[in-house]
Design a protein around this nucleic acid. Structure first.
Lengths: 192, 192
DNA sequence: CGATTCTTTGAAAACAGTCAATCTGTGTGG
DNA sequence: CCACACAGATTGACTGTTTTCAAAGAATCG
């Protein structure tokens, strides 16, 4: 039993046979730091699971500004949900922020696994619900909290990730400039 | 055939019998303007479908500030996704902004319908994906666009709703104060 | 009409963005 | 091993935007 198998065992009620079957349908990918996994314009045809390393999903606006949609570290998933579900060209880039090892499944593979293992579909549905709930929470945070509150919440909820990520990417995740985030953080240091 | 039946016929491949079955499992509710449909603290036990009228889903922060998560008009759904999926007390209020007629299904009812009609589950899954995609798009909009751009996008995407809703609720949906939105709008009027 | 809700406006203060310069650490190639 | 390039972080001065507070105008509804 390896890492992904342990993850599924901890998260689901699947039998060991089922778990191995899911694992056996995955392809592997190793990506060096700063290398792309998905580029805007391509269709996101896979669900990605991070074994080691760290990914970011981001978009680039008209003016060239990057906006980070998500960080995905070990034992987390990454995907461009819109491109994956609609099978249309993605607006997103997915990039490795560290040397990263991944597992990948196509939608066709996933659908076969779902058909064969209802419990695996149920798990996937639960993940989707959780992901959607987090998105809604983030929307609420965006429209109701100050930049400082958002930063504190991000650090509290992502204690490991935030140490491994350049500050300007956290800023871009929160929707403020790097200078503003730098000054917010400065205030914190003074308080100690 | 009535309104909801036409909606399902247009949106799905369900047979007329199936459509009537879905409809027959719903309960009806009429709500007067300004009346609550769900209160924070209660568990959101139903999916709501708006036949006529208009709902808003909103949250109230520590400081008492309201943040509108969503407007739901005719032929749209309303729900507190987090409370519904986790069956925990809601952080949201759902309120009628006009006299409104609704259809309601409990999760148990929905699950029975899904089990009996795979095509209805598929439809529900598609709606969920679309809803999630819109949430992600809104997050991108929140972190990358100016207040003015967000207002223009809102008007473009919700041409009917925005005429029926008080300005301060649109402001609260966008995450700006009513004064700011009033001034943004004023600029537009000058340009004509 | 009177009350309530909603919108607008003005002025000041707080906040965030921009631009430019500097400082830091990291890692690569000579 | 050092020098240099590079990515990242910080700082200051300035500009622009948004909030806040207070007041006053519309609009709506019983």
């Amino acid at each position: 039993m390896n890492q992904f198998e342990h993850y599924l065992r901890a998260q689901t009620q699947l039998t060991d046979d089922d778990i191995l079957r899911v694992r056996s349908c995955a392809t592997s990918l190793t990506v060096r730091k700063r290398q792309p996994v998905l580029c805007a314009g391509d269709v996101c045809r896979h669900k990605l699971f991070v074994l080691t390393g760290l990914l970011r999903v981001y978009r680039v606006g008209q003016d060239g500004t990057e906006s980070v949609m998500r960080f995905s570290a070990e034992n987390q998933w990454a995907i461009d949900h819109e491109s994956y579900t609609t099978e249309t060209p993605s607006h997103c880039y997915i990039e490795a922020l560290e040397d990263t090892t991944l597992l990948l499944w196509t939608k066709e593979t996933m659908n076969e696994l779902f058909a064969a293992m209802p419990a695996f579909r149920a798990f996937s549905d639960r993940l989707k619900d959780e992901s959607h709930n987090k998105s809604l929470q983030r929307i609420f945070s965006n429209i109701s909290h100050s930049a400082e509150e958002k930063y504190n919440a991000f650090v509290a909820e992502n204690p490991t990730v935030f140490r491994r990520v350049p500050l300007h990417m956290v800023a871009s995740y929160l929707g403020v400039t790097r200078e503003t985030l730098s000054r917010i953080r400065q205030k914190h240091h003074q308080l100690r």
